[in-house]
């Protein structure tokens, strides 16, 4: 705020609130980290301060890698997410270009449909979708998720890219077309390279949204080792005894890292993307 640079004011207006938020928002992660390194005996000892580490162990992580299918689940998640991201990105680039760049009857309606499709939650569709997946013989296969994740990825990325394509000056394309290029050629050689940052961030968001998905993965792909990481962790690592918490928290830490890194670089784009269609209109 203007003119309030004394330390006391800054402490009151900035550092104290900041500390409150840091504790409130990061506390569960700190707790996961502590537990994931805590020796099993200390975990059960209710006489010591639970927030402190009196010993240190990698046992929970070792257990995760050696005794569970954690690596396989992670690989599954990776395959599904990359597949769905590529498929969605290709479709979204085309939709984004058509809606952002071309003028045609029904264009407005299509834009509205894409936006509304983004708001359709998996909880609304998962029961009939399970039947569709089974009917197409995709149940338990990677394809079951690679084909269903785009239902929420395409609307999101299409909407985001539509806004992005609009920010690229139309004159560039027109100049190429005056020089004899077809529209498709102009799109491919002039517009795509300029849209690359937008495409990249749309890709990152598709990746993280796919990585975070839970319900479809739980219903369509949860047999044997064919599970995604969140589903595997929740359905196989939570057991009846109390000793599972160490490996559960270790899995939580490891599962958080990829998306945390991906998002931290692109978060500003994400938010502007949500309202992109609006603000760039």
């Amino acid at each position: 705020m203007v003119g309030s640079n004394t330390f006391r004011l800054r402490l009151l207006q900035l550092y104290l609130p900041l500390a409150f938020y840091a504790v409130f928002l990061l506390f569960p992660f700190a707790w996961m980290l502590i537990v994931s390194f805590k020796p099993a005996n200390d975990l059960l000892d209710t006489t010591i301060n639970p927030f402190l580490l009196y010993g240190f162990t990698f046992d929970h992580y070792r257990y995760l890698f050696e005794e569970t299918d954690f690596l396989r689940w992670t690989l599954n998640t990776f395959i599904v997410t990359v597949g769905a991201t590529i498929l969605s990105l290709v479709c979204s680039i085309l939709i984004g270009y058509a809606l952002g760049r071309l003028r045609f009857r029904g264009g407005n309606t299509m834009g509205v449909i894409i936006f509304l499709a983004y708001l359709v939650p998996p909880t609304l569709l998962f029961i009939p979708l399970a039947q569709v997946v089974t009917r197409f013989n995709l149940y338990g296969e990677y394809w079951s998720l690679i084909f269903t994740y785009p239902t929420f990825l395409i609307p999101f990325a299409g909407w985001l890219l539509m806004g992005y394509f609009r920010t690229i000056p139309i004159e560039l394309e027109q100049a190429a077309m005056v020089d004899g290029a077809t529209r498709l050629r102009a799109m491919w050689t002039i517009i795509m390279p300029l849209a690359l940052p937008g495409i990249l961030s749309a890709g990152i968001f598709c990746f993280t949204l796919g990585w975070n998905e839970f319900l479809y993965a739980l219903v369509f792909m949860s047999t044997g080792t064919m599970k995604t990481m969140p589903v595997g962790v929740v359905s196989d690592l939570i057991r009846a005894d109390v000793l599972f918490y160490g490996s559960l928290m270790a899995a939580g830490i490891l599962g958080s890292v990829p998306v945390a890194i991906a998002y931290s670089f692109f978060v500003d784009h994400y938010i502007s993307g949500l309202t992109a269609g609006a603000t760039k209109g």
């Binding site: 938020y21 840091a22 928002l25 990061l26 569960p28 992660f29 707790w31 996961m32 537990v35 993280t208 990585w211 975070n212 839970f214 969140p230 589903v231 962790v233 929740v234 939570i238 918490y245 559960l248 928290m249 899995a251 939580g252 599962g255 958080s256 998306v259 945390a260 998002y263 931290s264 978060v267």
Partner: peptide, 19 residues
């Protein structure tokens, strides 16, 4: 950093709350 609760898969962060 403060975005983590929203970024991390809910199924994963809920595990911390579970404990």
């Amino acid at each position: 950093g403060l975005l983590l609760p929203w970024i991390v898969p809910t199924a994963i962060s809920s595990l911390a709350w579970l404990m």
